[in-house]
Nucleic acid binder design. Structure first.
Lengths: 231, 231, 231, 231
DNA sequence: CATGAATGAGAGTTCATTCAT
DNA sequence: GATGAATGAACTCTCATTCAT
């Protein structure tokens, strides 16, 4: 997307731009492809470490070892530990978005598609709790840490994108724009609340099941949306 | 509550048991009272540090210093850093419960009391984000860390207690037990979701306001409860 | 001199204040004395390392090892690596001053005392080249580095003190204040220049000897001072 | 000058030998010329980095980047980081010598030329403190580091050359050879002392000005030289 | 009960240098 | 001749915890 170039070591291609770069020098292209592959490898190692050990037990050393590198080598691919997590998070959101979009595309417009999109969102995080963690990692005590405004904006954008299908269907069902936005936000919050409670074992204590509760919430949302019809 | 369990050399009464211990030896009693007071002092220091600096900048040293102790001294009162946080969390939940109960008591039975109790719950955490952190601290990557099953049960019990008023009012409004439990769980999840999103700045991106959304959710809950009336 | 107190770990008694502290609690006094002794030990280790290996090959690890400590332990005594060097430098200047003062005291007032004081200054650094390095350590590329303004002022003060005897004698020999200051500065510069050249082997190339050259410079300075007599 | 000594795998012509090598093979000559040009480019990059960032913030990476190379490439031209600095120093001395010689040539023989030569020497370093650093870089703790005897001799030779004009004029003014050598050495030391003190801020503390002091020293040197006249 | 000292492991990062391609 | 990748050792500093006194 941008020149990137990374002549020396540090620039390290800020997370987000991949092969692109237009300059179709075939040699550079091959090199780039290889570098991207290695970067992906490191990312994969980071994810595996992170999923097994949790965030704060995952050190640069640990990641490097799993990737078959010495610690210093990682700094060719990422500028800092937090850059690694930023990349991980970006990639996670991309997967989320893809999953939601695919589910939405496969369903009939209207209520079914709304259910499909929201369900895919919820299921993504229910199946991959670590991905939810990822979204909160850069917050320590709920305060942003290594989260640059740019990264933050990028993440917000991807999140919005992942929720866009729900918004679209609510509109299609007759809900005014303002109401649709409100409902999407509430839906998002409800999902996150259920997921967090579920992952921390706080939902079992009510002898409830998060998926069922989410379905119920959706049912009522569909009802509400239907009420706007014909208005 | 339990036999104090002096596992290590340091007695380090596991958080939860206070003066008790029956043996009414007056000397021992006085000693105990003093020890409890000192423990409370340390806890207060921990809270102040934690609220000012956030979780990961709050070291044992920092707490000790604020309490006027050397780091080693804390281990007379707490078995580990995590034990400190456990105690802090217990105390936080006690405050939450008190606040909810007080708000509920001041409102007329039925819908007003439901609103008061739920509102108090939500407001408690909205006003004190750190207390919400506390509830999640012992989870790293959404997996428990220094959370013994006993502590976990104790915390669950306190949480349930804090939500009990809501449950009671839903019943009073005519909701069957099973439905009431379900609704309380969902209510809890919704609140948590909104709070988390709010604290991490993810709600602003929808240009929404968490308190308003929570009120709307409550409105609809009251409606649903009303629907059971006369049945 | 100041409260110092060092409750927790980091404060680490900024270099300069020793046992003092008035509070004649005998226990605290003994503890303090011991702590000071250990600090001196670390300082000694630092000096030995530094004299053998030179400044930038002297790491915290190296110092710790020589002192029989783990690296982390040093941070009880010094806040940072640069704090160690600050202390080392302060102590060096104190020795210099003592040596100059002692030599000056043993000589007859006037020219002999001027010669004694200046000679002691020069000899101190000729005999201990590392002490001269110390004075320049905090300059990387002739630009101050870890040199806080306060430390800088303290060092300047001690240097001025060490040169004060020369100034006094020049005045006594009849030189006006302004001229005396000028001559002391020039004397200082000449000494430093000769020492630097000597230590870097640049004087041998002229087949000269720094001590002889310094004596010659002094001779002429005495002549000049004498010329003011009777005016 | 020497047989280029390709010790390691990388040719890395030790600093000091340029195109020479007699073998007038035109192809080899062109190659050589190009290599020299590239070497000069790297040197220029090193100087710029070094002057902007200072010695210890100037890494091989930084130099390479400024020269448009990758770090590894530099090792084709220089055997080590210290070799780079050696070359830089050689070049610096060449500039010094040129400046001194030019100033001396423009002044009338005798005292004026002495003043011009010495003044040029002093001004060179006063205007370019980094060049003075360069001269001391290879000394860590006043002990040579990456300074091979050959390099050392070469540097000494250039220094002597830069001071030769002063020596010549002192002789011309009637000073015997031995005295002239002594005075040149002392002059050199005085200049260096003033410069070092000035650059480290130690002269300001006397509220003096290095240039003025140097002029005074010169005045007296001229006097002394004059005293030999007619003898 | 509390101190003061110390440990030991580990954190993230930097850098000159090597070498296959 | 130059690249891009990687090494390996080093760096300062932080922290929870232990324990003799």
């Amino acid at each position: 997307m941008s020149p990137a170039a990374a002549t020396a070591r540090r620039p390290a291609r800020k997370s987000g731009d991949s092969a692109a770069d237009a300059t179709a020098d075939p040699r550079r292209l091959r090199t780039q492809a290889l570098a991207d592959a290695r970067r992906a490898l490191v990312l994969e190692a980071a994810r595996s470490a992170f999923f097994e050990l949790g965030m704060d037990k995952t050190s640069i050393r640990e990641i490097a070892q799993r990737a078959g590198y010495t610690p210093g080598a990682l700094y060719s691919y990422f500028a800092s530990k937090e850059d690694v997590y930023g990349a991980l998070l970006g990639e996670s959101l991309a997967r989320l978005d893809a999953q939601v979009r695919s589910a939405a595309g496969a369903a009939a417009a209207g209520a079914p598609r709304l259910r499909a999109a929201a369900g895919a969102f919820f299921d993504f995080y229910r199946a991959n709790p670590r991905d939810l963690d990822l979204g909160f990692y850069l917050f320590q005590g709920m305060k942003p840490r290594g989260l640059t405004p740019e990264l933050n904006d990028a993440l917000n954008a991807r999140l919005l994108q992942a929720l866009q299908p729900c918004r679209d269907e609510l509109r299609r069902l007759g809900m005014p724009a303002a109401a649709a936005l409100q409902e999407v936000t509430a839906l998002f919050a409800h999902a996150v609340g259920l997921l967090v409670l579920s992952h921390t074992g706080r939902i079992r204590m009510f002898r409830q099941d998060s998926a069922g509760l989410f379905r119920r919430y959706l049912d009522r949302l569909v009802e509400r949306a239907g009420a706007h019809e014909g208005s």
